[in-house]
């Protein structure tokens, strides 16, 4: 298998697994939510990740949906990270490895921007 095909295969697999998991969590969470409408509330990004994970494991609809959103947002991060590792270790292309690292650094930087009140 050519190196570039290997790169494509790795990135495609990363995308498939993470987006599939995210959609599954969101869909199941939504169905559970619709079957328990009394739980209506509008939680947003202020809930700590540990609580979201714990709630999702207990099949709490809101937490499952939130986890689905978090995984979906992180999918592009994984996409870039996958490209970084593939460039560096499969294709041995340092220049583009650093480009991917740069993009990843920008994405991570965004996570540290203090809460903006829109």
């Amino acid at each position: 298998m050519k190196e570039s095909e290997e790169l494509n295969r790795v990135i495609s697999l990363v995308l498939k697994v993470s987006s599939g998991l995210s959609m599954f969590l969101m869909a199941v969470g939504l169905v559970l939510f619709l079957s328990k409408p009394e739980q209506m509330s509008s939680r947003t990004g202020e809930v700590p990740f540990r609580e979201v994970l714990a709630g999702a494991l207990q099949l709490e609809p809101l937490e499952m949906m939130t986890l689905g959103i978090i995984i979906l947002i992180s999918t592009p991060f994984l996409r870039v990270a996958g490209a970084f590792f593939s460039f560096l270790f499969i294709e041995r292309d340092k220049v583009f490895g650093f480009v991917a690292l740069g993009v990843l650094a920008v994405l991570v930087f965004g996570l540290f921007i203090p809460g903006l009140t829109h």
Binding site: S41, G45, G115
Partner: peptide
């Protein structure tokens, strides 16, 4: 999301 503008519902 971190600014609270993405409500899961």
């Amino acid at each position: 999301y971190l600014s609270g503008n993405v409500s899961p519902v």
